[in-house]
């Protein structure tokens, strides 16, 4: 059984196709990356999957059932969205109290340790918290709830590098002890890339890429050298970005078996393309094209 399965799922607001025919299958017990630019439809997709909004068309299941108004399924999901609204009068500890009563697997002492880790002032009104502290609340609930399906939507806006590292460490160690399905939506792709087993990249509401992270590593290469050599090399190859500077040129292309050696033999210098750069190239307007990984 899949953790998440969607078929041609769509959500249309007045004139915006926020999610536009998404078909994905996510296996349980893995850490997924849901990537894409702002407005690509990541949050909307997660809101659909947690029944917070209703689909315009298409079908979806979470752990084999339709999640909409399904208490049994929703009790197994946790989704504190980046723009989560909290009652004006709430302090952080009020949210934690409520979360503790909602989630069957909630670990109170783990939540307490996380509060210390992130130095969250639990007695201060939430609306007086900084962006980073607000993010910490989401992270704490996401981790301590131990929900079989946990969504992290831009979980670390406003958090410094140290706090982000704490998040990665706690996520990995708790995941090892309590395996579950995690969907992580983030802009810090380079930082998170090593954590993700599989990535789904959305662009303008559609799936642009749905692939194992390991397959994407080395999936693209950047070559550079004399413009003529580069041009000759990229002919008949799938180029996703190209730049020129005088007589020199560089190109990012989908690498096939042996391309790396061939480029070196052609006296071109070859460098790897990080997941982040690959996605940047793929989602930049001028270069947009669907690729098969």
């Amino acid at each position: 059984m899949t953790a998440i399965s969607t078929r041609d799922l769509a959500k249309t607001y007045k004139d915006v196709r926020a999610v536009d025919g998404v078909t994905i299958d996510l296996e349980p017990g893995r850490i997924y990356g849901l990537l894409g630019r702002n407005g690509a439809g990541k949050t909307t997709l997660m809101q659909l999957l947690t029944g917070q909004i209703f689909a315009t068309k298409g079908a979806m299941t979470v752990f084999g059932e339709n999640p909409v108004e399904n208490a049994e399924i929703l009790a197994q999901t946790c989704f504190i969205q980046e723009s989560q609204k909290y009652p004006d009068t709430f302090r952080a500890r009020d949210v934690l109290t409520v979360a503790a009563s909602v989630y069957p697997n909630w670990d109170d002492s783990f939540a307490g340790r996380l509060v210390d880790d992130f130095r969250l002032p639990t007695k201060r009104l939430i609306k007086k918290l900084s962006r980073g502290q607000l993010s910490a609340i989401g992270i704490i609930i996401g981790l301590a709830s131990r929900a079989p399906l946990t969504f992290f939507d831009e979980p670390y806006l406003g958090l410094d590098a140290v706090a982000r590292q704490i998040f990665y460490d706690r996520l990995l160690s708790d995941f090892a002890e309590y395996p579950r399905t995690v969907v992580l939506s983030t802009h810090h792709i380079d930082e998170a890339a090593n954590l993700l087993e599989h990535v789904v990249v959305l662009d303008e509401g559609r799936v642009l890429l749905d692939s194992d992270t390991e397959e994407l590593r080395g999936h693209a290469i950047q070559i550079s050298g004399r413009a003529a050599d580069v041009d000759a090399f990229v002919a008949n190859r799938e180029v996703i970005a190209q730049e020129r500077m005088g007589g020199l040129a560089s190109a990012t292309l989908i690498a096939n078996e042996g391309d790396q050696d061939a480029a070196q033999r052609a006296d071109l210098s070859v460098s790897p393309v990080s997941l982040q750069n690959l996605i940047v190239h793929l989602t930049t307007d001028a270069q947009r094209s669907t690729v098969t990984a």
Binding site: R30, Q165, Y168, D169, L172, S173, N194, L195, L196, E197
Partner: peptide, 17 residues
């Protein structure tokens, strides 16, 4: 697997592989 994953900050499945 889990020690390796935690130490290198990588996905446990990758470490296991």
């Amino acid at each position: 697997t889990n020690e390796l994953a935690a130490f290198l900050r990588i996905n446990p499945a990758t470490a296991g592989k």
